[in-house]
Amino acid sequence: MMSFPLLEVKDISVEYGVDGKTIKAVSHVNLEINKGDIVAIVGESGSGKSTLAMTFLNLIEKPGRIRNGKVNYRGAKGVVDVLRMRPVDLMRYRWKEVSMIFQSAMNSLNPVMRIEDQLKDVMIEHGTVESAVDAKIDEKLKLAGLTTSVKKSYPHELSGGMKQRVNIALALACDPKLLIADEATTALDVVVQRQILTRLLKLKQDLSLSLVFITHDISLVANIAEIINVMYAGKIVERASAKQLFGNPLHPYTEALLNSIPTLEKGTAIKGIKGTPPDLSKEIKGCPFADRCPKMYDRCLAESPELKNVGDNHYVSCHLY
């Protein structure tokens, strides 16, 4: 059976204008998220993961702007382009259809509002009747693994892990179809990281959510994601199932990422990738990874590689294939 994507990103490009320079944060990205999928987006910091995720909610603000592309969402009334919605429709779409746990989650809660009020306002806005709100708040907090006593708290009274759980509860507040988790575990210690991750996966199962999991840490997604997108310099450079990607990485950047995972044999010394990502405010001719790539050859400098299917839905953007 052919499954239509829930969310389909088409040829999207986003740039930021700062100090007279134009930073091409996301360039011509295509992506599909099917119902029930767990899709991971991995890549070093600055590769454009958050910017890409922000377009799913049409949340790019000054100094950013979307240059071209579409974000097609399949809702109850058919397919709509999120980037061209009327403001009222966009308000209804946000959080009700797609919600997000932000990378800056520790600062994403309003410091002067009680937790329950921050859950309540969004529920009311999206049509929950006043009398049902209390029960729903309790339900969401429990789903996120919190006791209902945090309702009356203010954000500063909670630990990092608890704040992150509140953000999860918030993200679930309006029963969305798709949840984006942007570095949802990054700021937390390892034990809490595990708990949050497990919680997200369980929720995905129980609530039949689709999940976009964004992280700079490729080792996190091995056992989680069905499809992994590797991002580099604003582009997706490889896309494959977790099995294929870990078993048979094709792109030299993916290889480098996998090699940088500390293992018991290699010791825990962190082995980063040599060199730095390219300056996104400059025109890049050829492959963006060229100056860090051990397999670089003359064609790489002259021509920019396209993302292509090399069989079995394994996509890579590299002249070697």
Binding site: K96, S99, S108, N110, P111, M113, V122, E125
Partner: peptide
């Protein structure tokens, strides 16, 4: 510019609510 204002927008709240409960309530301190 605070993250909680961005999150309030992502929540699909009305501009009026964002302004009252998120912006002014903090800015008045």
């Amino acid at each position: 510019d605070e993250d909680y204002v961005l999150q309030a927008k992502a929540k699909g709240l009305s501009l009026n609510t964002i302004r009252k409960s998120y912006v002014n309530k903090n800015a008045i301190l």
